[in-house]
Amino acid sequence: MSMPTEERTPVDVAVGVLVERDAQGQEGRFLLTSRPEGKVYAGYWEFPGGKLEAGETVHAALARELHEELGITIGDSYAWQELVMDYPHARVRLHFRKVYEWSGPFEMREGQSMAWESLPVDSAPVLPGTIPVLQWFAAERGHVGPTHRD
């Protein structure tokens, strides 16, 4: 007799896709950060962000998390994509928001690393939830070929 599979309620997570723009407004490089030691998937590369707190909007959570983790203050953020990922440790609903304006120096407050990337990304390994984002970038930008290195 098989046990029914337990449906885990996803945890909502705000994810910042910081993108540089050129003088004509064309999107350029984007920011990836590594997961710090002591966290699940430590050393994997991802787009920065974190969990929403009770009553928080996705933008408010993103602004708070990016200030806590990176020391920056963001301007507006723009809803882009949403994705539910099942990891062994959690089921998460990732709310990806593009950010084009920020201020303040980057401070890696959790001991993580950062890298400005373009396709294909050099930083490896990338978190499984990051791979679809790289594919979305590729589709938007007409990129042909791999989006990341293994």
Score class of each variant (00 low, 15 high):
1 M>E: 08
2 S>T: 10
3 M>D: 14
4 P>W: 01
5 T>K: 13
5 T>A: 15
5 T>S: 14
6 E>G: 03
7 E>Q: 11
9 T>C: 08
10 P>E: 11
11 V>Y: 01
11 V>L: 13
13 V>I: 14
13 V>H: 04
14 A>P: 11
15 V>N: 09
17 V>A: 15
18 L>N: 09
20 E>F: 01
20 E>Q: 14
22 D>N: 15
25 G>A: 10
26 Q>R: 15
27 E>T: 10
28 G>L: 08
29 R>D: 11
29 R>Y: 00
31 L>K: 06
32 L>C: 07
34 S>G: 11
37 E>W: 00
38 G>V: 05
39 K>P: 00
41 Y>N: 14
41 Y>S: 10
42 A>D: 12
46 E>I: 07
46 E>V: 12
46 E>N: 08
48 P>C: 10
52 L>I: 04
52 L>W: 01
55 G>N: 06
58 V>T: 13
59 H>S: 14
61 A>N: 06
63 A>D: 08
63 A>S: 15
63 A>T: 05
64 R>W: 01
65 E>H: 11
65 E>I: 03
66 L>V: 06
66 L>T: 14
68 E>F: 02
72 I>G: 10
72 I>H: 04
73 T>D: 15
73 T>G: 13
73 T>I: 05
73 T>A: 14
74 I>T: 15
78 Y>L: 12
79 A>W: 00
79 A>Q: 10
80 W>A: 05
80 W>I: 04
82 E>S: 13
83 L>K: 07
83 L>E: 15
84 V>N: 10
84 V>W: 03
84 V>H: 06
85 M>E: 14
85 M>H: 06
87 Y>H: 08
87 Y>E: 06
90 A>K: 13
91 R>K: 14
91 R>W: 01
91 R>L: 03
92 V>Q: 14
93 R>W: 01
94 L>S: 12
96 F>H: 09
97 R>L: 09
99 V>C: 08
101 E>Y: 01
102 W>I: 06
103 S>P: 02
106 F>D: 02
107 E>H: 07
107 E>W: 00
108 M>P: 03
108 M>R: 10
109 R>W: 00
111 G>R: 04
112 Q>M: 13
113 S>G: 05
115 A>W: 00
115 A>H: 05
115 A>R: 11
115 A>I: 04
116 W>Y: 03
117 E>R: 06
117 E>D: 07
117 E>K: 04
118 S>Y: 00
119 L>A: 12
120 P>W: 02
120 P>H: 04
121 V>C: 13
122 D>R: 12
126 V>Y: 02
126 V>S: 11
131 I>C: 05
131 I>R: 15
133 V>W: 02
135 Q>T: 08
136 W>M: 07
137 F>D: 05
138 A>Q: 05
139 A>T: 05
140 E>Y: 02
142 G>N: 13
145 G>S: 11
147 T>K: 08
